[in-house]
Simulated scan of single mutants.
Amino acid sequence: MRMLYLLFPFFLLMVQGAAGSFLAPGSKKQCQRENGFCGFLKCSFPFVISGKCSRFFFCCKKIWG
Rank of each mutant, 00 (worst) to 15 (best):
S21W: 02
K42Q: 00
F37W: 06
F10L: 15
S54A: 08
A19F: 12
Y5G: 02
P9L: 07
A19W: 11
K42R: 01
L23G: 14
G26W: 00
C59T: 04
G20P: 07
Q16W: 12
S50L: 03
R2I: 05
L23P: 04
Q32S: 10
Q30P: 03
W64C: 06
S50T: 15
N35K: 15
K61A: 12
K28G: 03
R2T: 10
G51N: 01
K29L: 10
L13I: 05
Q32M: 13
F22R: 13
L4A: 13
L6R: 15
S21C: 09
K61Q: 11
S44Y: 05
S44G: 07
P46N: 04
L12W: 09
P46K: 06
C53G: 04
L6S: 09
K28A: 10
F56R: 13
P9D: 06
C60L: 06
G26S: 04
Q32Y: 08
R55Y: 04
G51Q: 00
F8H: 10
K42N: 02
G51A: 05
G39Q: 06
G65N: 00
F22V: 14
S54V: 03
G51I: 08
G39M: 03
Q30M: 04
Q32G: 08
F57L: 11
L13T: 02
K62S: 12
G36W: 02
F40H: 07
F58N: 09
G17I: 07
K61S: 10
V48M: 01
